[in-house]
Nucleic acid binder design. Structure first.
Lengths: 157, 157
DNA sequence: GCTTGACCTCAAGTCGCCTTGAGGTTGCAG
DNA sequence: CTGCAACCTCAAGGCGACTTGAGGTCAAGC
C-alpha cells in the first residue's frame, strides 16, 4: 500500500490537500508563500496542513471566480480565524463584502450587455450614439462628448 | 503648433489613435502585431491607421471586459470587414455570440452568489451542505459526494 | 536495508498583455 | 535648415499565478 502521509490528528500532507482541493502541490506551496494558508513541519521538514487549510483554499478558489486577486483574497482571509471555523458573524461580514463585489461585477456586465443590445438595434449604423464606442470609463479626461468618434465618418449616414 | 500627423484622407498616426482610443502606442503596436488592427506605412515608415481601426480597438476593449482574450477577440473580429463598417447583419452575428458569453458569465456569478447566500444562512456551521465548499466543477472525478469535506469535522456539531 | 514515491528547496520558465529602454529616423513649425 | 516631438525597431522587463526541473531527503513496505 502507498504511503498515507496524513497523520492521526488529521493534519494533511501536501499531496492530500492537493487531492482534496483539486490544486497542484506547487500551487499550495505558492499559496503558503503568499500567506493564504499556513503549515507546520514534521521532524523531517515536511508540511502538515491543519484541516482549516481545506476551508481556506476553497475560499480562495471561490474568491478568484469573483475576480479577486490572491492578495485581495488574503486580505479577506485575514479577517477570518486561522485555526478554527469562522463563526456565523465572522463569516457574514466577509460574505457581504463578496456579495457587493459580485453585484458590482454583474452590474458591469449587464451595462455592457445593454450597450451591446443597443448596438444590435442600431446595427452600428449610427455610430454617434452607439454606446459600445462610447464607454464612459475611458478618455473622459479631455472634455465631454464622444471623442472616440470626433471626425469619424458614420458609414450609413 | 505641434505636428498633427494625421493625414488629410483621415488616416491616423499611432499617437492620434492612441489618444482617441485611450490606449498607449505600445499597446497599439502590440495589437497590430497580434493581427487585431492593420496599418499602412508612409514613405518614412510610419504607421497610418484607417479609421476603422478605432472601431476595432473599441471592439477589442469591450471584448476584454467580457472576459475574452485578445486571441478570441481576433477570431471575432475576423468575421467583420477590415476596411468598412460592419453591416447590421454582420454585426448581429458577432453581437449575439457576445451576449451568450455575457449571459454565461452573469449566470456563473449568480450561481456563486446563491451558494454564498446559502452559506450566510448556514453561517458555514453546516459544512456538509455548504455549497461554497462543494463547487461542482472541481474534483468531481473521484466519485460522488462532498470529497472536500470527507473527514472534515464540522465546527458547530 | 533497500526501493519507491512523496516530499523538500531554489531557480527558472510560461502565458497573456503589455511597458520600458536604447539607439536611431521622420516630419512639421519657426 | 534646425530643433524637437513623434515616430521607428528590437530586446528586455514586469506582473499575477503558477509550473517545471534539477538535485536532494524522508518514510512506508518488503
Amino acid at each position: 500500500m502507498l504511503a498515507d502521509m496524513t497523520d492521526r490528528d488529521g493534519r494533511l500532507a501536501i499531496g492530500e490537500l492537493a487531492a482534496r482541493s483539486g490544486l497542484a502541490p506547487s500551487a499550495l506551496r505558492y499559496y503558503e508563500e503568499m500567506g493564504l494558508i499556513r503549515s507546520e513541519r514534521t521532524t523531517g521538514n515536511q508540511r502538515r496542513y491543519p484541516r482549516t487549510a481545506l476551508r481556506r483554499v476553497a475560499f480562495v478558489r471561490a474568491a478568484q471566480r469573483v475576480g479577486l486577486s490572491l492578495e485581495e483574497a488574503r486580505a479577506a482571509l485575514d479577517r477570518l480565524p486561522v485555526d478554527r471555523a469562522p463563526s456565523a458573524t465572522e463569516w457574514n461580514a466577509v460574505a457581504r463584502t463578496w456579495q457587493r463585489r459580485i453585484d458590482a461585477r454583474i452590474g458591469e456586465l449587464e451595462r455592457l450587455k445593454e450597450r451591446l443590445t443597443g448596438c444590435i438595434g442600431c446595427g452600428c449604423l449610427s455610430l454617434r450614439k452607439c454606446g459600445l464606442y462610447n464607454p464612459e470609463d475611458v478618455a473622459g479626461s479631455e472634455g465631454p462628448g464622444a471623442r472616440y468618434l470626433e471626425g469619424d465618418a458614420p458609414p450609413g449616414g
